[in-house]
Nucleic acid binder design. Sequence first.
DNA 1: AGAAGGACCAGTGGTCCGTA
DNA 2: AGAAGGACCAGTGGTCCGTA
Lengths: 253, 253
Amino acid sequence: DTTNALDALSQEGLSEEPVQQEKEAAGSGGGGAWDVVVAGGRKKQRRRKGQKKVVVEVGHEDGLEGGDDDENGDGEGYERQREHPFIVTEPGEVARGKKNGLDYLFHLYEQCREFLIQVQNIAKERGEKCPTKVTNQVFRYAKKAGASYINKPKMRHYVHCYALHCLDEEASNALRRAFKERGENVGAWRQACYKPLVALAASQGWDIDAIFNAHPRLVIWYVPTKLRQLCHAERNSAAACSSVSGGPDHIAF
Amino acid sequence: DTTNALDALSQEGLSEEPVQQEKEAAGSGGGGAWDVVVAGGRKKQRRRKGQKKVVVEVGHEDGLEGGDDDENGDGEGYERQREHPFIVTEPGEVARGKKNGLDYLFHLYEQCREFLIQVQNIAKERGEKCPTKVTNQVFRYAKKAGASYINKPKMRHYVHCYALHCLDEEASNALRRAFKERGENVGAWRQACYKPLVALAASQGWDIDAIFNAHPRLVIWYVPTKLRQLCHAERNSAAACSSVSGGPDHIAF
DNA sequence: AGAAGGACCAGTGGTCCGTA
DNA sequence: AGAAGGACCAGTGGTCCGTA
């Protein structure tokens, strides 16, 4: 199966992950693992020779803290393992400079799904409780498998953006292009992702949980609190509005 | 709707719950609320006059601890609010003495389901996360609604017994009659409930989660750890056995 | 300033063990 | 002894806020 090929690949070369000898290959100016993934057609990349596929138990080398800051890449001294910030990119566009693009962001969600599937398979094999969502356990597993660039706060932060991408890729792409053109930052784009989702929920009876549950890539993610609240608030004001105007199918926006 | 009628009713009269003035009416010798429920045909009991239906916010009176042990019922002094222990009863049989029967036990599971439904309705109304299982939140709600005789350790303890009752009532009834006849205690009966469930799982591909999920009254209960482990262990030894004997459909028992 | 993520916290699932 | 359930505990979902 090809489940791990992408994972192993995307663990390489990203400047932020702790494989020191490869770190700087992708750091700035593009050309990292993600670019390879995008250029190569999104699946079945062959692994680089000599790089072992990391799946379950990663031998822990403890190299993250302590001692030597002696390695440096492009002359900026010690680079922390924090991921490059996201910028708004169009579909297919590779982020330049020390930035990551939105295709890469969405790819992280796919990776989490693959890690979840692995955790589920292990649980089934052992006859243990089988998670249906991306839980702490899955994040822990991802980290142990070497995907240190995946963490819970980040993934939860952008879930609704990924949801829009899954549910209405056209609208998501249009929004990305518009916000890129306007030079908006990631935070503004992220905020803007709520509105089309709420509109979508409105058109489907306001049940955002049902919408997530009906989509195979989305069902594994918890509905973000704020999205749930927005849907609820909008439903109530739409109801108030329609009760004033009298029409049962009055549109809120 | 009739959702709360049973709840309100079964909150009355049971000797263990903290409505002091009614406590002793049902204490020993049968004749408590449960008997009324059984005799009355299991639904749409009318409420006793003057007894308010308790649903959400119970005015807390703090009367459980502190002060006066001055009330006493049938001459045994202060009776603690602990439920009478269960005994093995046949279907339809009312427990005599300071005991509770198994119909009453199973009725508690139905009550929990009704509390869950109430919690779900409230959550939906408020646009909040909606539990799909009987969670701590539901137990807390039950307690606030006056069903102090419902608690998590008890309900979790007997889940698999209730599961057998739901999935194969004939087998469950036969087991109850057999264990009553032999004079076995509740613990022995409880232990014995595992075996027919494991056999049932065996006949359905060993997926005990799927079996729970397929049943509308069971889907709201977490699969008990021990039941899951037994299914897993039995599956493995069945597999080993069939690989020795060579037949893919070899029966383990 | 905008953003990534370590680390905290309230409340969870699970059940032990002091109690009656 | 057999059994009910208060109360504890490890690990959860959720996200704040000290960090870069």
